[in-house]
Write a protein that binds this DNA or RNA. Structure first.
Length: 264
DNA sequence: GCGACAG
DNA sequence: ATCTTGTCGC
């Protein structure tokens, strides 16, 4: 892959004001509606009954299933290990990684300026052309609607979604505690977000839940680029396979840890 | 000053 | 993110 709009590449040497200004431009360039050509119902392993019963799901003769790339990182002293795992129909078709120097610390709201460059390094080594990019972090659920998933999605002009394990800003429409698997509720913009209060900017998604007692927290899914909040939630659930994290992200996390181990 | 804050 | 074993509950 190659950045299609390098003017949006995150510059770690920029001042805080410049970083925030770029994020506002990224948000303006972003599309929070569905604007892709792949078939969302064919993402993931696709072992759910409605699409398999009729047998219309593309087999050897049908069109290829969409390629979904998961991106995650692991950290060394002064470097980041960025890993990308591409899946097609639940099968790994490619893995790529990069080890990059880190320049700035983690600052809430400016994550893409710390991790964006390293992630671009890894994505540039990917030979496949992913239909969808799944990031570990927020997309539209961000103060300026320009979280990591949105920023990267715009730089590569590729459909993307953000999957965070905790909420950066906004508020769930209702309590998210102890919900059943498959449940979801909208995340509404609050005063911390650059949009009218109450707008849906993402979803809390219960990707996994124990049958009793102990509770698992939901995932916070939001549009990165070219994907709506509703579709982002659908796509992430389709990518889940028995674990809290969707497979693309979970496998990228594993891969990043493997690479890190070799450098330790 | 206080609170809140992805990875 | 990272430092890390056991342990709770089915």
């Amino acid at each position: 892959m190659e950045p299609r709009y390098p003017q949006y590449l995150p510059d770690p040497t920029a001042t805080r004001e410049e970083m925030e200004a770029l994020q506002r431009r990224v948000a303006e360039a972003a599309t929070f509606d569905d604007a892709f050509t792949f078939d969302p119902t064919r993402v993931g392993r696709g072992d759910d009954e409605q699409t398999t019963l009729g047998g219309e799901r593309g087999g050897p003769s049908g069109p290829d299933a969409p390629v979904v790339a998961g991106v995650d990182q692991a950290f060394l002293d002064d470097a980041a290990v960025s890993a990308v795992v591409c899946l097609q129909g639940g099968e790994v078709v490619e893995r790529a990684h990069a080890v990059s120097e880190l320049s700035i610390p983690y600052i809430p709201g400016l994550l893409s300026f710390r991790e964006g460059g390293p992630i671009v390094d890894a994505l540039e080594r990917v030979q496949t052309n992913p239909d969808l990019l799944v990031f570990d972090g927020s997309g539209r659920i961000h103060y300026r609607q320009a979280g990591l998933a949105t920023h990267m999605g715009v730089v590569f002009d590729r459909p993307s979604v953000g999957v965070a394990k905790s909420l950066l800003c906004g508020r769930p429409r209702e309590s998210v505690d102890g919900r059943p698997e498959g449940w979801r509720t909208p995340i509404l913009a609050d005063s911390d977000v650059d949009v009218p209060d109450g707008r849906v900017i993402g979803y809390a998604v219960q990707s996994r839940q124990y049958e009793s007692s102990r509770k698992i927290n939901p995932l916070y899914v939001s549009p990165g680029h070219r994907v709506s909040a509703e579709t982002a939630a659908d796509l992430v659930l389709r990518c889940c396979d028995g674990y809290k994290l969707p497979e693309p992200t979970r496998l990228a996390d594993q891969y990043a840890a493997e690479v890190k181990a070799e450098y330790t």
